[in-house]
Design a binder for these strands. Structure first.
Length: 408
DNA sequence: GGACGACCTGC
DNA sequence: CAGGTCGTC
C-alpha cells in the first residue's frame, strides 16, 4: 500500500523551492485555522489536498520541499491529454543513476515518474500561488512592527505566518461550518464532508484522500444526510448556499469575486444563508485576495481590548455590525492594506495549541540547538544550493551524512 | 443600531 | 460554552 512520504527516507521523489522560515512556517500556517485539511503525517511533514492533488510538504531552513502523489487513475490521462494539447515531449526526470549510491531501493518505491517539464513548472506555480510566495512577508512584518510594538513583540516568535490563497468554494463551505464551533470539531466535519461528497483521490497508509466537493455535489445533497454526519443546523446552510449560488449566479460566480472590490465581494457573500460578516470576511481574506479584510470574532475582539486598549464598544454584549466595522477600520489604519495578514499572526499567537512556543525564551538558534544533525543539514544545504531551484532532487538524510563528511 | 434566544453537537 | 447567523423585537 502507498505510504506517506518522508524527506529523510529517500524513498520518494522530492522537489524544492527556495523559501526561508521567516517567509513561511508550515507548522503555524497550516494549523492556525485557515485551512482545515492539512495533517502532520510525520514530524514536520504536512499532507493535504490542494488543486486536486495530494501533497506532502516539509521544510528545511532555506527550502520548501514537496512531494506529489499520483492519483488513483486520473493523472496519467491528464498528462497525456496535456501533452497532446501542447506537444511537449515526455522526459524522465528521475533516472536510476540519480539515485544515491548505496541507498537501499525500497519495496514500495514508486515507478519512476513520467513528468513533462510543464507539469513540474505548473506544480511549482501551484505552490507559489497557494502560499502567495510573491508577497514578501518579512518586509510586511518589518512594516507592521515599525508602527506596532505589540506586533513586534509577538512577531519575534511567530514568524512566517502567511495567508493561504485557498480555493473559494472550499474556503466558503469550510467556514460555513465554523459558526459556534471549535477547530478540532471543524476539522472532523470538513473531512466528513469531503469523504461523503468529494471524489476519492487515493489512499496513503490508512488514510483516504478526497477532493473538496463540487458546488453541484453540495447542492444536490439533502440536508438530512449532512445532519446525520453531525453538521447540525449548518447542514441546511451548506446545501442552500450551494443551491443559491448555482441557481442565481452560476458556477464561476465565487471565483469571479476575486476581481471585485472587497466590500462588494463581502456583501455578495453575505446574501448566502449561513454567511454573516465574520464568515464573509474569512472567505474574502483567505480565498478572494482581499488582504484588507479583517475577520472579527470574539477572539479578535478580546485581542483588541486586551492588547490594544480598544475601548469603543465596551458596553456591547456581543459583536455588532458596528463593532465589526470599527475594529476592522482600527486595524486597517494600524497595519495598512495587508491588515488581514497581520491579524492572522496575532490570532495564531493566541491559539492555545501554540502557547508553548512562548515559554522558551527565543534564543537565536546559535549554540545549543546546533546538534550534529543540523550541522549536517547545513552541509547538505550548501552542497545543493547552486542547483536547488527547479532541479529534481532525490536525496536522503544518509546522503546528507555523506556530503557532510566530505565537507568537514 | 442593538439585544436576545434559538440553533446542532461535543468536550 | 465554543472562532456565528438568523429572525424578531
Amino acid at each position: 500500500m502507498a505510504k506517506h512520504a518522508v524527506l529523510s527516507s529517500g524513498a520518494k521523489m522530492w522537489r524544492s523551492l527556495p523559501c526561508t522560515k521567516a517567509e513561511l512556517r508550515l507548522d503555524l500556517t497550516l494549523a492556525c485555522g485557515q485551512s482545515f485539511r492539512w495533517r502532520e503525517t510525520a514530524e514536520g511533514h504536512w499532507t493535504g489536498v490542494m488543486g486536486g492533488r495530494i501533497w506532502t510538504l516539509t521544510q528545511t531552513e532555506d527550502s520548501l520541499w514537496y512531494h506529489i502523489y499520483k492519483n488513483k487513475e486520473s493523472s496519467l490521462e491528464d498528462g497525456s491529454d496535456r501533452m497532446r494539447r501542447t506537444g511537449v515531449s515526455v522526459q524522465i526526470e528521475s533516472k536510476p543513476e540519480n539515485r544515491i549510491k548505496g541507498a537501499p531501493k525500497k519495496d514500495d518505491e514508486e515507478p519512476l515518474a513520467v513528468t513533462s517539464v510543464q507539469d513540474t513548472e505548473e506544480e511549482k506555480e501551484m505552490l507559489r500561488d497557494y502560499f502567495q510566495l510573491n508577497v514578501k512577508l518579512q518586509d510586511l512584518y518589518r512594516e507592521w512592527g515599525d508602527t506596532d510594538p505589540h506586533f513586534r513583540h509577538i512577531a519575534h516568535i511567530f514568524t512566517g505566518v502567511r495567508m493561504l490563497r485557498q480555493d473559494p468554494t472550499e474556503c466558503l463551505f469550510s467556514f460555513i461550518c465554523t459558526s459556534n464551533n471549535h477547530i478540532s470539531r471543524i476539522q472532523g466535519m470538513v473531512e466528513r464532508l469531503c469523504q461523503a461528497l468529494g471524489a476519492q483521490l487515493c489512499q496513503l497508509d490508512q488514510t483516504s484522500y478526497y477532493n473538496f466537493p463540487s458546488l453541484s455535489a453540495l447542492a444536490d445533497n439533502n440536508e438530512a444526510c449532512l445532519r446525520d454526519l453531525g453538521f447540525g443546523y449548518r447542514a441546511r446552510f451548506l446545501q442552500q448556499s450551494a443551491k443559491q449560488i448555482l441557481d442565481t449566479h452560476g458556477i464561476h460566480w465565487l471565483d469571479g469575486l476575486r476581481s471585485v472590490p472587497y466590500l462588494q465581494a463581502r456583501d455578495a457573500l453575505r446574501t448566502l444563508p449561513g454567511v454573516g460578516t465574520k464568515v464573509a470576511d474569512c472567505v474574502c481574506l483567505m480565498s478572494l485576495d482581499k488582504a484588507e479584510a479583517v475577520p472579527i470574532d470574539t477572539h479578535v475582539w478580546q485581542i483588541a481590548k486586551r492588547d490594544y486598549n480598544y475601548a469603543s464598544g465596551n458596553a456591547q454584549k456581543s459583536i455588532t455590525d458596528k463593532i465589526h466595522r470599527d475594529i476592522g477600520d482600527f486595524f486597517r489604519k494600524l497595519w495598512g492594506p495587508y491588515a488581514g495578514w497581520a491579524q492572522s499572526v496575532l490570532f495564531c499567537a493566541d491559539l492555545k495549541k501554540f502557547q508553548k512556543l512562548k515559554e522558551t525564551p527565543h534564543q537565536k538558534h546559535s549554540h545549543k540547538e546546533e546538534t550534529g544533525e543540523s550541522e549536517m543539514r547545513a552541509a547538505c544545504k550548501k552542497s545543493k544550493r547552486k542547483t536547488e531551484e527547479s532541479k529534481t532532487v532525490k536525496i536522503s538524510m544518509s546522503a546528507c551524512h555523506k556530503k557532510a563528511k566530505v565537507f568537514f
